[in-house]
Computed example of a mutant assay.
Amino acid sequence: MIEKKISIGIAYYWSPPTRARKAGCPVLPEALGTDYGAAKQRCDDVLNPHYRAWLAKGEEPGVPQAMRGTFDWMVATYKVSPKYTKLPAETRSSYDRMLKMVSVLPLKDGRTFGTLTLASITPGAADKLHDRIKVNPKGGERIRTAVLAMKVCQRAWNVARRSEPKAVPSDNPFQKMDIEYKAKTTRLFQYDDLQKFVAAADAAGEHSIGTAAMIAFFWLQREIDIIGRLAWSHYRPSDAPHVARIIHHKTGEVVDLPLYDDDGTALWPDIMQRLDSSDRHGTLIVTRDTADRFKGVRLPWKKRHFLRQVAKIKTTAGIDPEIKFMGLRHGGTTEGADANLSDAQMRALSGHRTTAALLRYAQASTQQRRIGARLRRNARTKGGQTSE
């Protein structure tokens, strides 16, 4: 996606590289309008996946086509499947890294793993592959990466098998590998941490980052959606001015969060007051806090730059550097669990589809255990069954 300055501001366009157009790329240039969030969503969900699918077939000059029946061919087959193209952009990017890591892994005879025929990849070969990947180039362990790589290979094999049953063996060597990884518990941003962070962000002139943190904690939206898609049209939208429309692009869930209680009391006074008093600098709510010196407008944050600034603000605020920005969403969800909300109530707020997904965010806490113990005690003593 590229942007161009026009008389009314910034407009967005999508176009494949010139070399791809000359090679007959079927995905044509397209004008995307002036709404950055809508333009980016069109690119992430439609145009870029179609372009990558075309690239995967090896039709661009300089992109060799993998030999049929090899691991590289299987990967290319997977990438043109809707099972891949319909994944969120960030997930596809992660899967791409894993598959490329496996594909380019050098073998003893000078070949790469990607050139191996599928029939030659045995469960034993998959085990050896896992053992090699879990050791990083510097000699340390990367167990989580190795497990993810094997899971993605397993998925790619199964999807390719459905498309090409004659070329992909039915026995998937990446299944039943008996490998596990216990993810580290995400460190939580507590409400007190949030207040210190926002104060430090404002003092540093990074008002937008403080706003992003509050949205993540209170409205439980993911970072990529906050800095790249959340528009002013989602806050008090014209068709529902008493809600904040939070869209979780990863799952496709749309949550209309009410802004007021039945008696008219504000339900989110901290963030509502901040947004209602904020100046608007374009379609997105969260943009950089200074105008670009060349374009004269406030541009959207890039993820890496945004996270670097977040790290600086945490240091200034005296917040543990191990607490990541994602800890805000986890912290807000856990606050709901501490408040004794039911799973259904928390899912209604967070947009999680299942309780299993919710529980990865709503961490067990001392407060929840205290409430549980209190309820058990009350149930025990209500009938006078103890000496209390």
Rank of each mutant, 00 (worst) to 15 (best):
residue 275 L to M: 09
residue 230 L to Y: 04
residue 308 R to C: 05
residue 232 W to P: 01
residue 347 R to Q: 13
residue 210 G to L: 12
residue 336 G to R: 06
residue 281 H to W: 12
residue 310 V to L: 12
residue 293 R to N: 15
residue 268 W to M: 14
residue 209 I to D: 10
residue 307 L to W: 03
residue 335 E to T: 11
residue 302 K to G: 15
residue 204 A to E: 02
residue 211 T to H: 01
residue 282 G to D: 00
residue 314 K to G: 06
residue 316 T to P: 01
residue 279 D to N: 07
residue 227 I to T: 02
residue 333 T to F: 04
residue 247 I to L: 14
residue 247 I to N: 09
residue 233 S to L: 12
residue 307 L to Q: 12
residue 346 M to T: 14
residue 254 V to N: 05
residue 268 W to L: 08
residue 335 E to P: 00
residue 255 V to N: 02
residue 304 R to A: 15
residue 235 Y to D: 02
residue 266 A to F: 07
residue 255 V to K: 10
residue 300 P to Y: 14
residue 258 P to K: 15
residue 329 R to N: 04
residue 323 I to Y: 00
residue 322 E to S: 14
residue 217 F to E: 10
residue 216 A to T: 07
residue 271 I to E: 02
residue 218 F to W: 11
residue 334 T to Y: 03
residue 276 D to F: 06
residue 323 I to L: 01
residue 271 I to N: 00
residue 276 D to L: 04
residue 248 H to V: 14
residue 336 G to A: 08
residue 218 F to S: 07
residue 326 M to S: 08
residue 273 Q to K: 10
residue 205 G to T: 06
residue 300 P to S: 08
residue 246 I to Q: 02
residue 266 A to R: 13
residue 217 F to T: 07
residue 335 E to G: 08
residue 223 E to N: 08
residue 257 L to G: 05
residue 238 S to G: 02
residue 295 K to A: 12
residue 266 A to I: 03
residue 243 V to L: 05
residue 328 L to E: 01
residue 292 D to S: 09
residue 278 S to C: 13
residue 245 R to L: 06
residue 248 H to M: 12
residue 295 K to V: 03
residue 230 L to P: 00
residue 305 H to R: 09
residue 343 D to A: 11
residue 228 G to S: 03
residue 292 D to F: 04
residue 214 M to R: 06
residue 343 D to P: 05
residue 264 G to E: 10
residue 238 S to R: 13
residue 228 G to D: 01
residue 246 I to Y: 00
residue 204 A to N: 02
residue 211 T to D: 12
residue 335 E to F: 14
